[in-house]
Design a protein around this nucleic acid. Structure first.
Lengths: 375, 375
DNA sequence: CCGATTGCTGCAAAGGTTTGCAGCGAAATA
DNA sequence: TATTTCGCTGCAAACCTTTGCAGCAATCGG
């Protein structure tokens, strides 16, 4: 029923190859002919069959986007951005959810490999070696993780964690706990490293709790441990955990920020809506999505695989595997305050009244253009 | 580079058609041969080229899922469920986001039409006639809207709204406002209708505010109007708006639930985390996603389009276009309380102390099996 | 006026798979 | 034993598009 290239050719009295060229290389066809073809195509509602095109060009004009958990509000802005960026370049996006399962990740890449021109691997939980292996099967761009030799886009959570810790130190906190993220998370390791260094440099005690599920539940479950540890400030792997923790602390009788200060990471929309509003490290996830798509689709793009005999494998395999790191920014709201003045935790007494203002920068870090770290 | 069916055939010493049948009709091939072929295929890492298969079968084994706004936490559970259900049946899902734009919706359906076997149209904002027109281009299942003649899966928000209003009436509220949703939303119309009937039946004043953007911001912006209208209770189109409204009311000096009771719809995860915890109507969105996929993929499924000459159009075009409606359930938490006792709003004095308990049913309405409304 | 160039179009192969049909040997039936 | 049946496999067409190459007419240079 749907019109094929042949129908258009017949209707406009030209050969199918002319119709094809009308779309893929308009400058090669006589303007008059072109007009006629276009008119007929419009009339018949012709749309090229992508499967047939993919078969011969080796390009599907699809990209895969593999996400740890769509329900985590961290991801949707990234997905949206990636999708709209791809659409602008006439690509479509397959979104797949792994439920934080490394096995599912691997299977998904395999399943998608033949069907897409490249895969965006977002917050992968699998091993580096597995990622490298998969990258031989299909072009990959990794988001939220650095893998040597592969194009990556990350956010500078190390810097973010450092800012957060320094903010807490400035408020007089000297017993700081970190709620780490899921096993296998590069981000979690970065945060841990940077926060640890900063905390110790500031002369604070630093405890790590985890690994944990990066959800409200995961955060809530840690309230009791935090209470027992007598930390006066907590940095959480993400906002969801921070919010869950606040809830949990409330249940065990600790108030935020009076008794305990809590800092999240991500600045999801939700963090502005809970009470208290969450102090958090804003990450430019929309920008990350856009950037990742651009990196995957650079050079008009991703070398066609397995195309027409002879051609194809020729040149240009050495894609510039850039690694981009985007800036983060601490946003101070109401979940952090001066350390409680009840004794040993209170080494110096900077009494800062925290208000809902920002540490730096005017607006949301949407346009966060990252610095290229490696080439 | 990637192994084709031909490579497998060569390696196992059979014709390609035998390899093909090994996968698509195993019972037709000798177990011994089959084993050999399977082994070789495994060895070579062979995976059938879906584009080539699509070309001949007319089935892409992909489905499209068009969503108004991924960032709205209402949708991710639905997306996840749809995706995993599809994956179980060896289908993949294209997720696309329209940003609540009817034009984008239409374009997306067109763009996807040739590339998928069917489209799940979730919370469409476009007109019914447009939907009908598009359904002639590609099989459609509509979610969150009833369109005559098309398979639909909806949630009984009418019943939900009624329960909510009755709950509020029971608490003594007699001035009730409704924050309606976006223009073009079937759900919003249903809620409005049902809530209006219930409110008037209970002798309450009923005002409608809207249409509005279905976001926190949209809800927050209405706080002032709610204050001026002197409503003591508000039903919002969704939880996001309800939460935004609570925030906004706080800013204009009204406390929830002491001064104003607020009820949301959807029961997103967030509604359990804000303070006060939100009283809301739980909708079974995961079930909706699963059901919609099943409906689209029923009959092994969606009649192949434009297949091999002659065949194809033959039979079975009269798919049973069922319309399924899933149950909803009122979940009472902390954002609703007895109407303030300061006079005219307080017609009868049922003093109910609302606690965080449920009105009915034991657990989350996950398995909400809906009744078939039409056939 | 002849040869080369240019601009446009047609031809046909190729891409990887599915599937109706035919063929083949062996077993079952007559 | 002759014939049908059955189980399995091979053959080849078809799906729709892209693209290198060839051909053709008209224009240009000399």
């Amino acid at each position: 029923m749907p019109a094929t290239i042949r129908d258009v050719a017949r209707a406009s009295g030209v050969h199918i190859s002319t119709v094809s060229r009308t779309f893929s290389a308009p400058h090669l066809v006589n303007p008059e002919t072109r007009g006629r073809v276009l008119a007929c195509a419009e009339e018949l509602g012709y749309r090229p069959n992508r499967a047939a095109r993919a078969l011969i060009t080796g390009r599907t004009h699809n990209v895969g986007l593999i996400i740890a958990d769509i329900a985590n509000p961290f991801f949707p802005p990234l997905i949206k951005a990636a999708e709209s960026q791809a659409r602008q370049r006439d690509y479509h996006v397959f979104v797949a959810d792994t439920n934080e399962d490394p096995i599912a990740e691997e299977e998904l890449v395999h399943a998608l490999a033949k069907q897409v021109d490249g895969v965006l691997l977002c917050s992968p939980r699998m091993s580096n070696s597995m990622i490298e292996q998969l990258s031989r099967e299909v072009p990959l761009v990794v988001i939220n993780r650095q893998v040597a030799g592969l194009p990556c886009v990350t956010m500078d959570v190390g810097q973010g964690a450092r800012s957060a810790i320094e903010h807490l130190l400035g408020l007089g906190h000297r017993r700081i706990a970190l709620l780490s993220g899921p096993r296998g998370s590069w981000t979690s390791r970065e945060i841990r490293r940077a926060a640890g260094v900063a905390a110790r440099a500031g002369g604070a005690e630093f405890t790590v709790l985890g690994p944990n599920q990066p959800t409200e539940t995961g955060g809530m479950a840690l309230a009791e441990q935090v209470r027992r540890g007598e930390a006066t400030a907590v940095l959480a792997y993400n906002d969801l955990m921070a919010i869950g923790l606040i809830e949990g602390l409330d249940a065990v009788g600790l108030r935020v920020p009076q008794d305990v200060s809590v800092v999240g990471i991500d600045d999801i929309a939700l963090s502005r809506l809970t009470r208290p509003k969450l102090t958090t490290v804003a990450t430019p996830n929309a920008a990350a999505g856009r950037t990742a798509v651009d990196m995957l689709l650079q050079h008009d793009t991703v070398a066609a695989r397995g195309s027409r005999g002879g051609r194809g494998v020729t040149s240009d395999d050495r894609r510039t595997t850039a690694q981009v790191m985007l800036q983060t920014e601490l946003v101070i709201r109401d979940s952090t305050a001066a350390a409680p003045a009840d004794g040993r935790n209170r080494l110096d007494a900077e009494l800062v009244t925290p208000g809902p203002h920002r540490l730096a920068g005017p607006g949301r870090p949407t346009a966060a253009t990252g610095g290229v770290v490696a080439s």
